[in-house]
């Protein structure tokens, strides 16, 4: 059974509806990519999962119905959402950001988690007391992932980690995402506009179009499919 399952999820911002019945599943231990054009509903889908948008439909996580839970309760189940814009706590230091990441953990941030996170991001110890807003865009993205990992999440929701970053930084970030997935067994659902890099990392992908899943399949299938490639992936 899938770790996360959405079935017939509708969502709206005031009078404007953004999702018209999205259904998808994310298997435990997988990296799944959510692709699509601007305004297709990718971000909204993540927000529906973390309960930060008004929605109807069924969302289950590890067998629990989470569709009616408050965002903070969803987080407490082990779903770490790195939102659009990275959610950096800009006025706080790097270390305080990490402590906030471990907020839901009993006893707060542990040495073990901190060392593990520093294993992925070796620059962190030296910059521990730097104010987060003064980090570069790439560093802020990495800090956002590091902060999410401090929670020891079972599911990591990433909203466009490549946004506004240099290609080389994007490569590094996706390398880390794969490492996190393999070493720490964290399931990842990643929203991307940059379809080619997302498909390299993901085993499975869904393509959204106007608030609905238009195509889905393994990354290999989607990369091979000429029509899909042209109309949805743009290369």
């Amino acid at each position: 059974m899938a770790l996360l399952e959405l079935s017939d999820v509708h969502a709206r911002y005031g009078p404007i509806s953004a999702l018209h019945g999205v259904s998808l599943g994310v298997d435990e231990g997988a990296i799944v990519a959510l692709l699509g054009a601007n305004g297709a509903g990718k971000t909204t889908t993540l927000r529906a999962i973390s309960s930060t948008v008004r929605k109807t439909g069924e969302i289950t996580f590890d067998g629990h119905d989470i569709s009616r839970r408050a965002p903070e309760d969803v987080a407490r189940l082990g779903i770490a959402h790195v939102p659009e814009g990275r959610g950096t706590l800009g006025q706080l230091t790097v270390w305080e950001n990490l402590r906030m990441g471990a907020y839901v953990r009993r006893g707060g941030a542990s040495k073990v988690d901190y060392d593990r996170v520093c294993g992925y991001f070796s620059w962190i110890p030296a910059r521990r007391n730097q104010v987060a807003a003064t980090l570069s865009g790439g560093e802020q993205q990495m800090l956002a992932i590091a902060r999410a990992l401090m929670m020891r999440p079972r599911l990591l929701l990433l909203d466009e980690p490549s946004l506004g970053l240099a290609p080389i930084v994007v490569q590094e970030i996706f390398k880390i995402i794969r490492a996190v997935n393999e070493q720490d067994k964290v399931t990842v659902l990643v929203v991307e506009q940059n379809a080619s890099i997302a498909l390299q990392a993901a085993a499975h992908a869904y393509v959204l179009e106007v608030g609905k899943v238009a195509v889905s399949g393994t990354s290999a299938e989607l990369q091979k499919d000429e029509a899909v490639r042209r109309s949805y992936l743009g290369y």
Partner: peptide, 16 residues
């Protein structure tokens, strides 16, 4: 401090 400065992000981190 986090909740007063960044209520939305804090909520995603599990802060009530």
């Amino acid at each position: 401090r986090a909740a007063s400065l960044y209520p939305d992000s804090s909520r995603l981190l599990g802060v009530r």
